[in-house]
Simulated assay, not measured.
Amino acid sequence: MPELVAPTVRLQAAWLEAHAEWGPGQHEDGFGLGPSDEVGTPVGFAAWVARLTGEVDLAEATDTGAAGCTYRWIVERDRVLGGIALRHGDSDYVRWAGHLGYGIRPSARRRGLATWAVSRMLDEARMRGMDRLLVVCAVDNVASARTIERCGGALEDTTSGPVRRYWIEP
């Protein structure tokens, strides 16, 4: 059974394995990986996890985008299957990327994990008093659109460039 866990250095090897499956880059939405994050070393990985979990100075976290965000990893038997981020507030970044971002590693897709994780994060949003969440996906990302719709997403439009914009009331 999968679980949502806060990012932890204990899962560095498992996270690196998932990251390698995606290939190089920072494209796994939900992990909060930035261009300057160095995750290949224990020290760099620990610094990144500290940023994600809010164990760093708030000003630094704001500059790197970690402030105002709850990150969780989707883990099953110490294997990182994906990540999900609940972005708080109404910043320019949230208006562009949405309140929720998630990604499932290729080998773990088609199991309903994204729908399961989004549902759990909607509970978190509700507890935080968030009453309306923007969720976006690429127009051609049919799997993500289905996930969002299964979780109650109402399509706003597809005229905002190459993305679909949905609203979910948790």
Results as ranks from 00 to 15, higher is better:
1 M>E: 11
3 E>G: 04
4 L>A: 05
4 L>V: 11
5 V>Q: 13
8 T>I: 07
9 V>I: 14
9 V>S: 08
11 L>E: 03
11 L>G: 02
12 Q>A: 10
12 Q>V: 05
13 A>L: 09
14 A>S: 10
15 W>V: 15
15 W>I: 10
16 L>P: 03
17 E>A: 15
18 A>D: 10
18 A>P: 05
19 H>I: 11
22 W>H: 10
22 W>P: 00
24 P>Y: 04
24 P>H: 11
26 Q>H: 12
28 E>N: 12
28 E>V: 07
28 E>T: 06
29 D>H: 08
31 F>K: 02
32 G>S: 14
33 L>S: 10
34 G>Y: 04
34 G>W: 01
37 D>E: 02
37 D>H: 08
39 V>E: 06
44 G>P: 11
45 F>E: 02
45 F>L: 04
46 A>P: 11
46 A>K: 11
47 A>V: 14
49 V>H: 06
49 V>M: 05
52 L>G: 10
53 T>E: 03
55 E>R: 15
56 V>M: 14
56 V>K: 06
57 D>C: 13
63 D>W: 13
63 D>L: 11
65 G>I: 01
65 G>E: 01
66 A>S: 15
68 G>Y: 00
68 G>L: 03
70 T>I: 13
70 T>P: 04
71 Y>D: 04
72 R>Y: 07
72 R>V: 07
73 W>N: 07
73 W>Y: 06
74 I>Y: 12
80 V>C: 12
82 G>T: 00
83 G>C: 11
86 L>S: 04
86 L>R: 00
87 R>C: 06
87 R>N: 07
88 H>S: 06
91 S>Q: 09
92 D>E: 14
93 Y>G: 13
94 V>H: 04
96 W>F: 01
96 W>V: 09
96 W>C: 14
99 H>C: 03
100 L>S: 00
103 G>C: 11
105 R>D: 08
106 P>T: 04
106 P>C: 11
107 S>L: 01
111 R>L: 11
113 L>N: 00
113 L>P: 04
116 W>I: 05
117 A>K: 03
118 V>A: 09
122 L>Q: 05
126 R>K: 13
126 R>H: 14
127 M>T: 13
127 M>N: 15
132 R>E: 12
133 L>N: 01
135 V>D: 00
135 V>R: 04
140 D>C: 08
141 N>M: 10
142 V>D: 08
144 S>M: 07
144 S>E: 09
147 T>K: 04
149 E>T: 15
149 E>H: 08
150 R>K: 15
152 G>F: 08
152 G>P: 08
153 G>P: 04
153 G>L: 12
156 E>S: 09
156 E>G: 08
157 D>T: 14
157 D>I: 01
158 T>E: 15
159 T>C: 13
160 S>R: 14
161 G>K: 13
163 V>G: 03
164 R>E: 12
167 W>A: 13
170 P>L: 08
